[in-house]
Every structure is written in C-alpha cells, then in structure tokens.
C-alpha cells in the first residue's frame, strides 16, 4: 500500500508490480489510493441503494392491495435479520450521501482537489457521528431494547 500511496499524486509514474498484480488482479486496480477506494465505495453503495429502491417501490405498492397485505409486507422489515440489513442500507445511504457532498466540494471549491484526502477523513468522521446517533435507536427498535 505504501507504493500506491506514493504513486497516487503523479499520473505519469508507471504502476509498479504489486502483490495484487502478481495475483492477476492488477488489471482491476487503478492507482490504488484514497481516490480509487472512495470511488469504488461510491459505486458499490450507489448500485446497492438503487436495487433496494426498485424493491422498495414494489413493496410499498402492496398498500393498494389491502391494509392486511401491506402490514404483512411491513412485518418483514421488522424481522431482526432485516433490521440488520436496514442498518447496512442506512450506512450505505449515509456514506454515499456524504461522499457525494465531498465530490461536489472537490468540483466546486478551487482548493478541493488539493484537500480531497482531508475531505474524505471528514466524510468518515461525520459518517461515524451519524451512525452513532442512528444505530442505538434503530437496533433498539429492531431488538426491542427501547
């Protein structure tokens, strides 16, 4: 990772042989630095949230069938396993949102590209604060602690 870190700033330096490239995974690795991992995380969380959105529109649509049918579907969301899934979903949404703000700042602020790593640290810090507020409430509701 030290290689990736030092390579990150200079796009003209050719990629060195890394453990990943020896394993045949080099082709999927861009410069391996902060920017790449936040890009990958943004893409994974975005795709995951989009797929959930498609399903969520369908499950809410059962409200047009009958009150009992809708309540039965909502009952699935109260299952402890689903509750943990919802915690992961909210984490993905929050990360995607905060990293999206970081992307807007990098685009709009003249010093944004220079400080993008600091901004990413900010994303992680705000993420941890928001999840520290959300998780006790949500897990409390899911497992009946409240």
């Amino acid at each position: 990772m030290k290689d990736a870190e030092t390579r990150g700033g200079d796009p003209t330096t050719p990629a060195k042989t890394t453990t990943l490239s020896k394993l045949g995974l080099g082709g999927t690795l861009y410069r391996g630095s902060w920017g790449q991992w936040s890009w990958l995380l943004h893409r994974i969380t975005g795709a995951a949230v989009f797929i959930f959105l498609l399903l969520h529109i369908l499950d809410v649509a059962t409200i047009r069938i009958s009150p009992g049918a809708f309540n039965a579907v909502m009952g699935i969301y109260r299952h402890p396993v689903m509750g943990l899934g919802e915690a992961v979903l909210v984490a993905a949404v929050v990360l995607h949102a905060l990293n999206g703000v970081r992307i807007i700042i990098v685009d709009a602020w003249s010093q944004g590209a220079k400080y993008h790593k600091h901004l990413l640290v900010g994303v992680v810090v705000v993420f941890l604060i928001l999840m520290a507020g959300f998780l006790p409430v949500h897990l409390g509701n899911t497992f009946g602690w409240r």
Partner: peptide, 27 residues
C-alpha cells in the same frame, strides 16, 4: 443528489427514528 440528501434524510428520520421506528410503519 443535493435534493436527495434532504428528501432521504427526512424520510429516514420520520420513518426510522420517530416512535418505534420501523415497528411503527404500517397501513
């Protein structure tokens, strides 16, 4: 994206953080 921060934030706050959260969401 900026709009969704407000819309999704409000959606999650009302549906998951008030009352008994996901246990309050029904017909």
């Amino acid at each position: 994206g900026a709009l969704l921060i407000v819309l999704v934030g409000g959606h999650l706050a009302i549906n998951l953080m008030t009352g008994h959260g996901v246990h309050s969401v029904d017909f």
